[in-house]
């Protein structure tokens, strides 16, 4: 289980996370939704220790990840898989080598076994036969899927997805969601999915946290969030421009 306790983080004087407390249950899919710039990615990066909190603690099975360094931290990270927002594929390697990378670097698996596993994963994300291509030759959606294959290749216990379906067409969006659900069922990993896909995300998540302006404003089952009467959550669900979270300030600043 991952437990965030009163996590604060600011960058160059701007407070991004304002005392986040959240319990992410083991073996379930937790979705984090919220407007762009609300701190979702920063929150996700705290879970794997890519960003350390200014204050507060991030506990992974009771271990404070903020206090770990070096090999101990690397060892803990072996239990994680992460899909980055932009894919973060190594652009000097082919898709195949990208997906095979963690296996080659972290295990002593024979090349034939690596080939088999990578091809299986590429097949699962709909990229069979694309292994020889370089990331630059792929569309945005294909990059995402290649990155997803890489995130899952080590069969991690905890997988962090940063907008796994942004930029995908509706068919591929559902296919990726189904892939997440199915692999999660088989492998039983703990998944944290940062997403903008409303209402699709409610079909796959067991729990949904709504983050607004650096704070968790709701944390409930998908049904609970969908049935919420909170004006802020309602506005986010319906995508209304008018409401508690208004754009006028941003628009005025832009002008």
């Amino acid at each position: 289980m991952i437990h965030l306790i009163e996590v604060y983080k600011s960058f160059q004087g701007q407070q991004v996370l304002k005392g986040i407390t959240l319990e992410i249950p083991k073996g379930q899919i937790t979705a984090i939704i919220g407007r762009s710039g609300s701190g979702k990615t920063v929150l996700l990066k705290h879970l794997i220790g890519l960003i350390r909190p200014d204050r507060g603690r991030v506990l992974v099975d009771g271990v404070d990840i903020g206090t770990l360094r070096g090999r101990v931290l690397d060892k803990l990270r072996d239990r994680f898989g992460m899909l980055f927002q932009g894919g973060a594929l190594f652009d000097s390697l082919t898709v195949f080598d990208n997906v095979a990378f963690p296996l080659r670097e972290k295990t002593r698996m024979p090349e034939a076994e690596i080939r088999k596993r990578v091809e299986e994963k590429l097949q699962a994300v709909g990229l069979a036969g694309m292994g020889h291509k370089y990331p630059v030759e792929l569309s945005g959606g294909m990059k995402k899927r290649a990155a997803l294959a890489r995130a899952l290749i080590m069969d991690p216990e905890i997988v962090l997805f940063d907008e796994p379906t942004t930029g995908l067409d509706p068919i591929m969006l559902n296919a990726i969601h189904r892939l997440i659900v199915e692999t999660q069922k088989v492998l039983g990993f703990t998944a944290v999915v940062v997403s903008h896909d409303i209402p699709e995300i409610f079909d796959i998540a067991h729990r949904v946290a709504v983050i607004h302006d650096g704070s968790i404003v709701a944390y409930d089952s998908p049904e609970g969030i969908q049935g919420s009467q909170d004006p802020l959550i309602r506005q986010f669900m319906t995508g209304g421009v008018q409401g508690p979270s208004n754009l006028s300030r941003i628009v005025q600043e832009d002008l």
Partner: peptide, 25 residues
């Protein structure tokens, strides 16, 4: 340039997230 581009495109973060030390690598 290579390391710089890897930094801005989160490739260094990806290495770190895999439990690989980017300086070592």
């Amino acid at each position: 340039a290579e390391i710089g581009i890897m930094r801005i495109t989160e490739q260094i973060d990806a290495l770190t997230a895999m439990g690989l030390n980017p300086v070592k690598h």
